[in-house]
Nucleic acid binder design. Sequence first.
DNA 1: AATGAATGAGGCTTCATTCAT
DNA 2: GATGAATGAAGCCTCATTCAT
Lengths: 211, 211, 211, 211
Amino acid sequence: MTADPDVRLRADARRNRDQILAAAKAMFAEEGPDVPMEEIARRAGVGVGTLYRRFPDRDALIKAVAQDNFAQVLAEAEAAEGEEPTAWEALVRLLSRSRALRLSVHLALLSPQAWATIREDPQTQHFRDEIMDVLDRIVAGAQREGQLRSDVGAGDVAVLVSLLLKRVPAPKDTADVVTDRVLALMLDGLRARPGSPLPGRVLTAADLRDR
Amino acid sequence: MTADPDVRLRADARRNRDQILAAAKAMFAEEGPDVPMEEIARRAGVGVGTLYRRFPDRDALIKAVAQDNFAQVLAEAEAAEGEEPTAWEALVRLLSRSRALRLSVHLALLSPQAWATIREDPQTQHFRDEIMDVLDRIVAGAQREGQLRSDVGAGDVAVLVSLLLKRVPAPKDTADVVTDRVLALMLDGLRARPGSPLPGRVLTAADLRDR
Amino acid sequence: MTADPDVRLRADARRNRDQILAAAKAMFAEEGPDVPMEEIARRAGVGVGTLYRRFPDRDALIKAVAQDNFAQVLAEAEAAEGEEPTAWEALVRLLSRSRALRLSVHLALLSPQAWATIREDPQTQHFRDEIMDVLDRIVAGAQREGQLRSDVGAGDVAVLVSLLLKRVPAPKDTADVVTDRVLALMLDGLRARPGSPLPGRVLTAADLRDR
Amino acid sequence: MTADPDVRLRADARRNRDQILAAAKAMFAEEGPDVPMEEIARRAGVGVGTLYRRFPDRDALIKAVAQDNFAQVLAEAEAAEGEEPTAWEALVRLLSRSRALRLSVHLALLSPQAWATIREDPQTQHFRDEIMDVLDRIVAGAQREGQLRSDVGAGDVAVLVSLLLKRVPAPKDTADVVTDRVLALMLDGLRARPGSPLPGRVLTAADLRDR
DNA sequence: AATGAATGAGGCTTCATTCAT
DNA sequence: GATGAATGAAGCCTCATTCAT
């Protein structure tokens, strides 16, 4: 599930790499994308030198974390598609799981610079494309099933997912309820049913492609 | 509508203060809360010294921006409450306007540290409380009118607003459509109508209060 | 007794000047010669602008304080010479009073830079010369009286005075006893009496003249 | 004799640390305790970063210098005690050597802030205590020998030493003579011999303990 | 290959001094 | 004349990155 097989690394090197990635993920989440490299290294239990051997600079580390995150989302999406009996249920599951992915994804989205870095990375781009493909299929399926309103596209759903990834401004112990309720509201809004038609046109994956 | 009239300042000092605040708002938005103070000063057309005379450190500046932002939201909420014929319409307007506030609000929410700073500021706290009061009245009103589903509270709506304030990952020219559609979806989800009841209990303002 | 008659100043201007000088003296004593000019101004109850009108820069202020201090020492010396019945008693009094002068003198002697500034100031130079003249007479007199050992000069005594001006590293309440005892020891050392002759030659005022 | 062996440092790191300390000592002496850290670093032949890695801030550096200085004084005192045939001679030697220690000791004593920093440092405190212990023994010994007047204590001698550490206001080439003569005067004052008794009570180490 | 020391650029902040009100 | 606002140079310190051990 790791984004970057990176030739073959010796077992210990691989372990180092993983520890660094995990440390970076955690610290980005807790402290934002500006944590000193040295602290990431310390948390990973290695020296800075080792960190830099693996990731030439901060941007490389950010990209690696982003790739890892998106890879995880892709895996979730594919699992949902493959394991759920109906596309609607896959959609519901996908949206529910976003909550779980939140912690891992939004980390890198904190600073505009970090975001720019990620946006430019082709590897990450690639994952995003694949995710959108799966989403496209799920959306189409759910509409064919008559469960999902027909005036939404994968782009719309993607936006919802991204919103659900946002850290809500609620105390830790309420955060889960909050997300559950928002999700339920969104599902109610997504359900096929007479209602006010959405403004604009159906949003596709392409609409969200940057630049 | 500025948060801090700050006794009487000499005319030029006041103008400087306002320019600095505006510059900070803009640069926080564009670059995140870590922009060099010097750049903010340059953009405001003053020397760093002036900036520091007015705002003793970065945190003070962040707080001032946050206060200004929340004051704006409060003004919007009160205007919506006072000017719209029904509470439901006030609610719709409020959610629509969030989009306009986005640029100004989310600025300071980028880094965990910045967020902590804001959370602690009593002045800002105060604005948040007042905003929630207005929201409470609007929500109750819309429910009395039978337009708003009865299993939501001001807390739920506040969360939606905060989500709408998030920068969506879409190209600039699509961003507006995206937000319009998300908003419409949310409104569809909020409308009183037979549907799946929301999980958990109605969220009140208190549920979102930190700590 | 003020060092610098400075043409004629209007009464209020003169009062400002004196307040600034007093404030500077006090703050140099408490905080060292690097206290912010602004704090000196505040303590004097005037704006910085006023301070700078009176003293073009920090060095000018330091010089003024030094002049004031030395003028005071000179006055003490002359008073001792004029009022005491014997030269030895004048000498004893002078050394005793140094204690009182300490607070005011050592202030400006804290930083090497400040010291350089003072050393170069001709006005202060002048006071030092006059002081040495008085001291010369007192020393000669006391030796003629047979009270003061004959192998010391005004230079030697001046050094002792300067040592007595040093802040001793003792708790506030012990400081006075300490100085009294040191002084008594020194006087015992100075008294004419068979003992080991001092090394080197008699130190005159000229020996201490810098450069 | 260095105050802080600081676990084991890599050979080069240790050398750097020592160079920094030496540079700081020299520059504090010449320029006072406010010399720019960068200049200290330059003089030590290292980058600022290195300086800061070793001494987290200026205060840490000041403390380290102070500790080193006091350690040196202690060593001198112990050597004098151990190597001189009589306690009186040990005392004379100690007072003479103070002159040599001057350059290194008074450095850090220039600004009130620096002094406060040092006073608070327990490590330095410790050295001061040990020094006083040695002094106590020397004083008692010299009195038993009948050489030292009986109405002085280690506290009195400590004060004399501290005075001798003061930079005398004399041209460089005269400074040594000056100190020799002052020292001789003091010794004459200290010698056991009928004379005027000292005022107050014998000063002990405790009398000088701050707070 | 791993470590952690060294470097120095760059951001933060203070404060001496100047200048508009 | 007095005031206090504005300026910007200069010192402090941090941290990304490089490099010796």
